[in-house]
Design a binder for these strands. Structure first.
Length: 275
DNA sequence: CGCGCCTCCTGTGTGC
DNA sequence: TGCACACAGGAGGCGC
């Protein structure tokens, strides 16, 4: 998504903005009209990402911050294209081209934010670097993990420990690292923390190469194209199917009002479990 | 202060 | 056939 914005949006000026659903800009403190006023007339200088947040630094000194939530899309569309059913915000870039925020479930949203330290909007200063970031601190990650008093998957989903990891990539990385999701973080040995970090990087890099994980038409890039990483999933969504490593049937457990997928052979539940 | 539960939202699939 | 409900889940707020 970020690469698509870099190719199609960076260097353009926003000629106009239309907020069609106020909830899509609920994190913008000034409200929908202020949002539209703050993006209109601004040129887009870059396309940046930290974890699951994307932002476009503007020549006004502020940034247009986006989170896609579960179902959000940023689409570059000709203005002549019919409005999508769940079109929430329309930005007119130049004659005939629009950047559209489309979001069925409206968990995502846009806002205009002042910058903070490290060229990151102050609003997301609490979001850690993601494991593919060149400045990610491996040793600090291991320390932060061990300091937590919770299960390892809960810690992975906490974006202040490391970012960019959601339910799918957590399950895939834990399987590769042969760790159960309920393993207490404080019992992780240094070698296990290193194995987990390496697995996270493998999964995230492979998913990026594949263009992301697209279960249906909701998960697309700015051109509306799906990724194909779901074909490479080892455990997620594969309840009852044989484990690629040992052949035992994969299991699904309820976890935090969602699901965790594990191999009972490769990832035995720890005697002391936290979840 | 830190952990963990709850809520927001809508479309799809399933079971009765 | 139609209704009810489970499920998908990121993240912030808040209770303990």
């Amino acid at each position: 998504m970020r690469r698509g914005l870099e190719a199609h949006v960076v260097g353009r000026r926003v000629d106009g903005a239309e907020v069609r659903h106020a909830r899509a800009v609920r994190r913008h403190l000034g409200g929908p009209d202020d949002f539209a006023a703050r993006v209109t007339g601004c040129a887009v200088l870059a396309a940046r990402r930290r974890g699951k947040y994307l932002w476009l630094p503007l020549d006004s000194g502020e940034s247009l911050l986006a989170h896609l939530g579960m179902s959000g899309q940023l689409l570059v569309q000709p203005g002549s294209a019919p409005d999508e059913t769940h079109l929430r915000v329309r930005l007119r870039l130049r004659a005939g081209v629009e950047l559209r925020f489309v979001d069925q479930r409206t968990f995502g949203g846009l806002s205009v934010e002042p910058d903070g330290a490290d060229d990151v909007p102050a609003r997301i200063a609490h979001i850690a670097r993601d494991p593919l970031d060149p400045d990610f601190d491996d040793a600090a990650f291991a320390v932060a993990l061990r300091r937590r008093r919770t299960g390892v998957k809960r810690a992975l989903l906490d974006q202040t420990v490391a970012s960019g990891i959601g339910n799918i990539y957590a399950d895939e990385a834990l399987w590769r690292a042969r760790l159960h999701y309920a393993r207490p973080t404080e019992t992780l040995r240094p070698a296990e923390a290193r194995r987990l970090l390496a697995a996270l990087r493998e999964v995230m890099a492979a998913a990026l190469r594949a263009g992301g994980t697209s279960f249906d038409a909701l998960y697309v890039d700015v051109d509306g194209r799906s990724g194909y990483f779901e074909r490479s999933l080892a455990v997620y969504g594969r309840e009852g199917e044989p484990c690629d490593a040992c052949g035992r049937p994969l299991r699904r457990d309820p976890f935090m009002n969602r699901s965790s997928y594990t191999c009972p052979g490769c990832q035995p539940r720890p005697r002391r479990a936290r979840w």
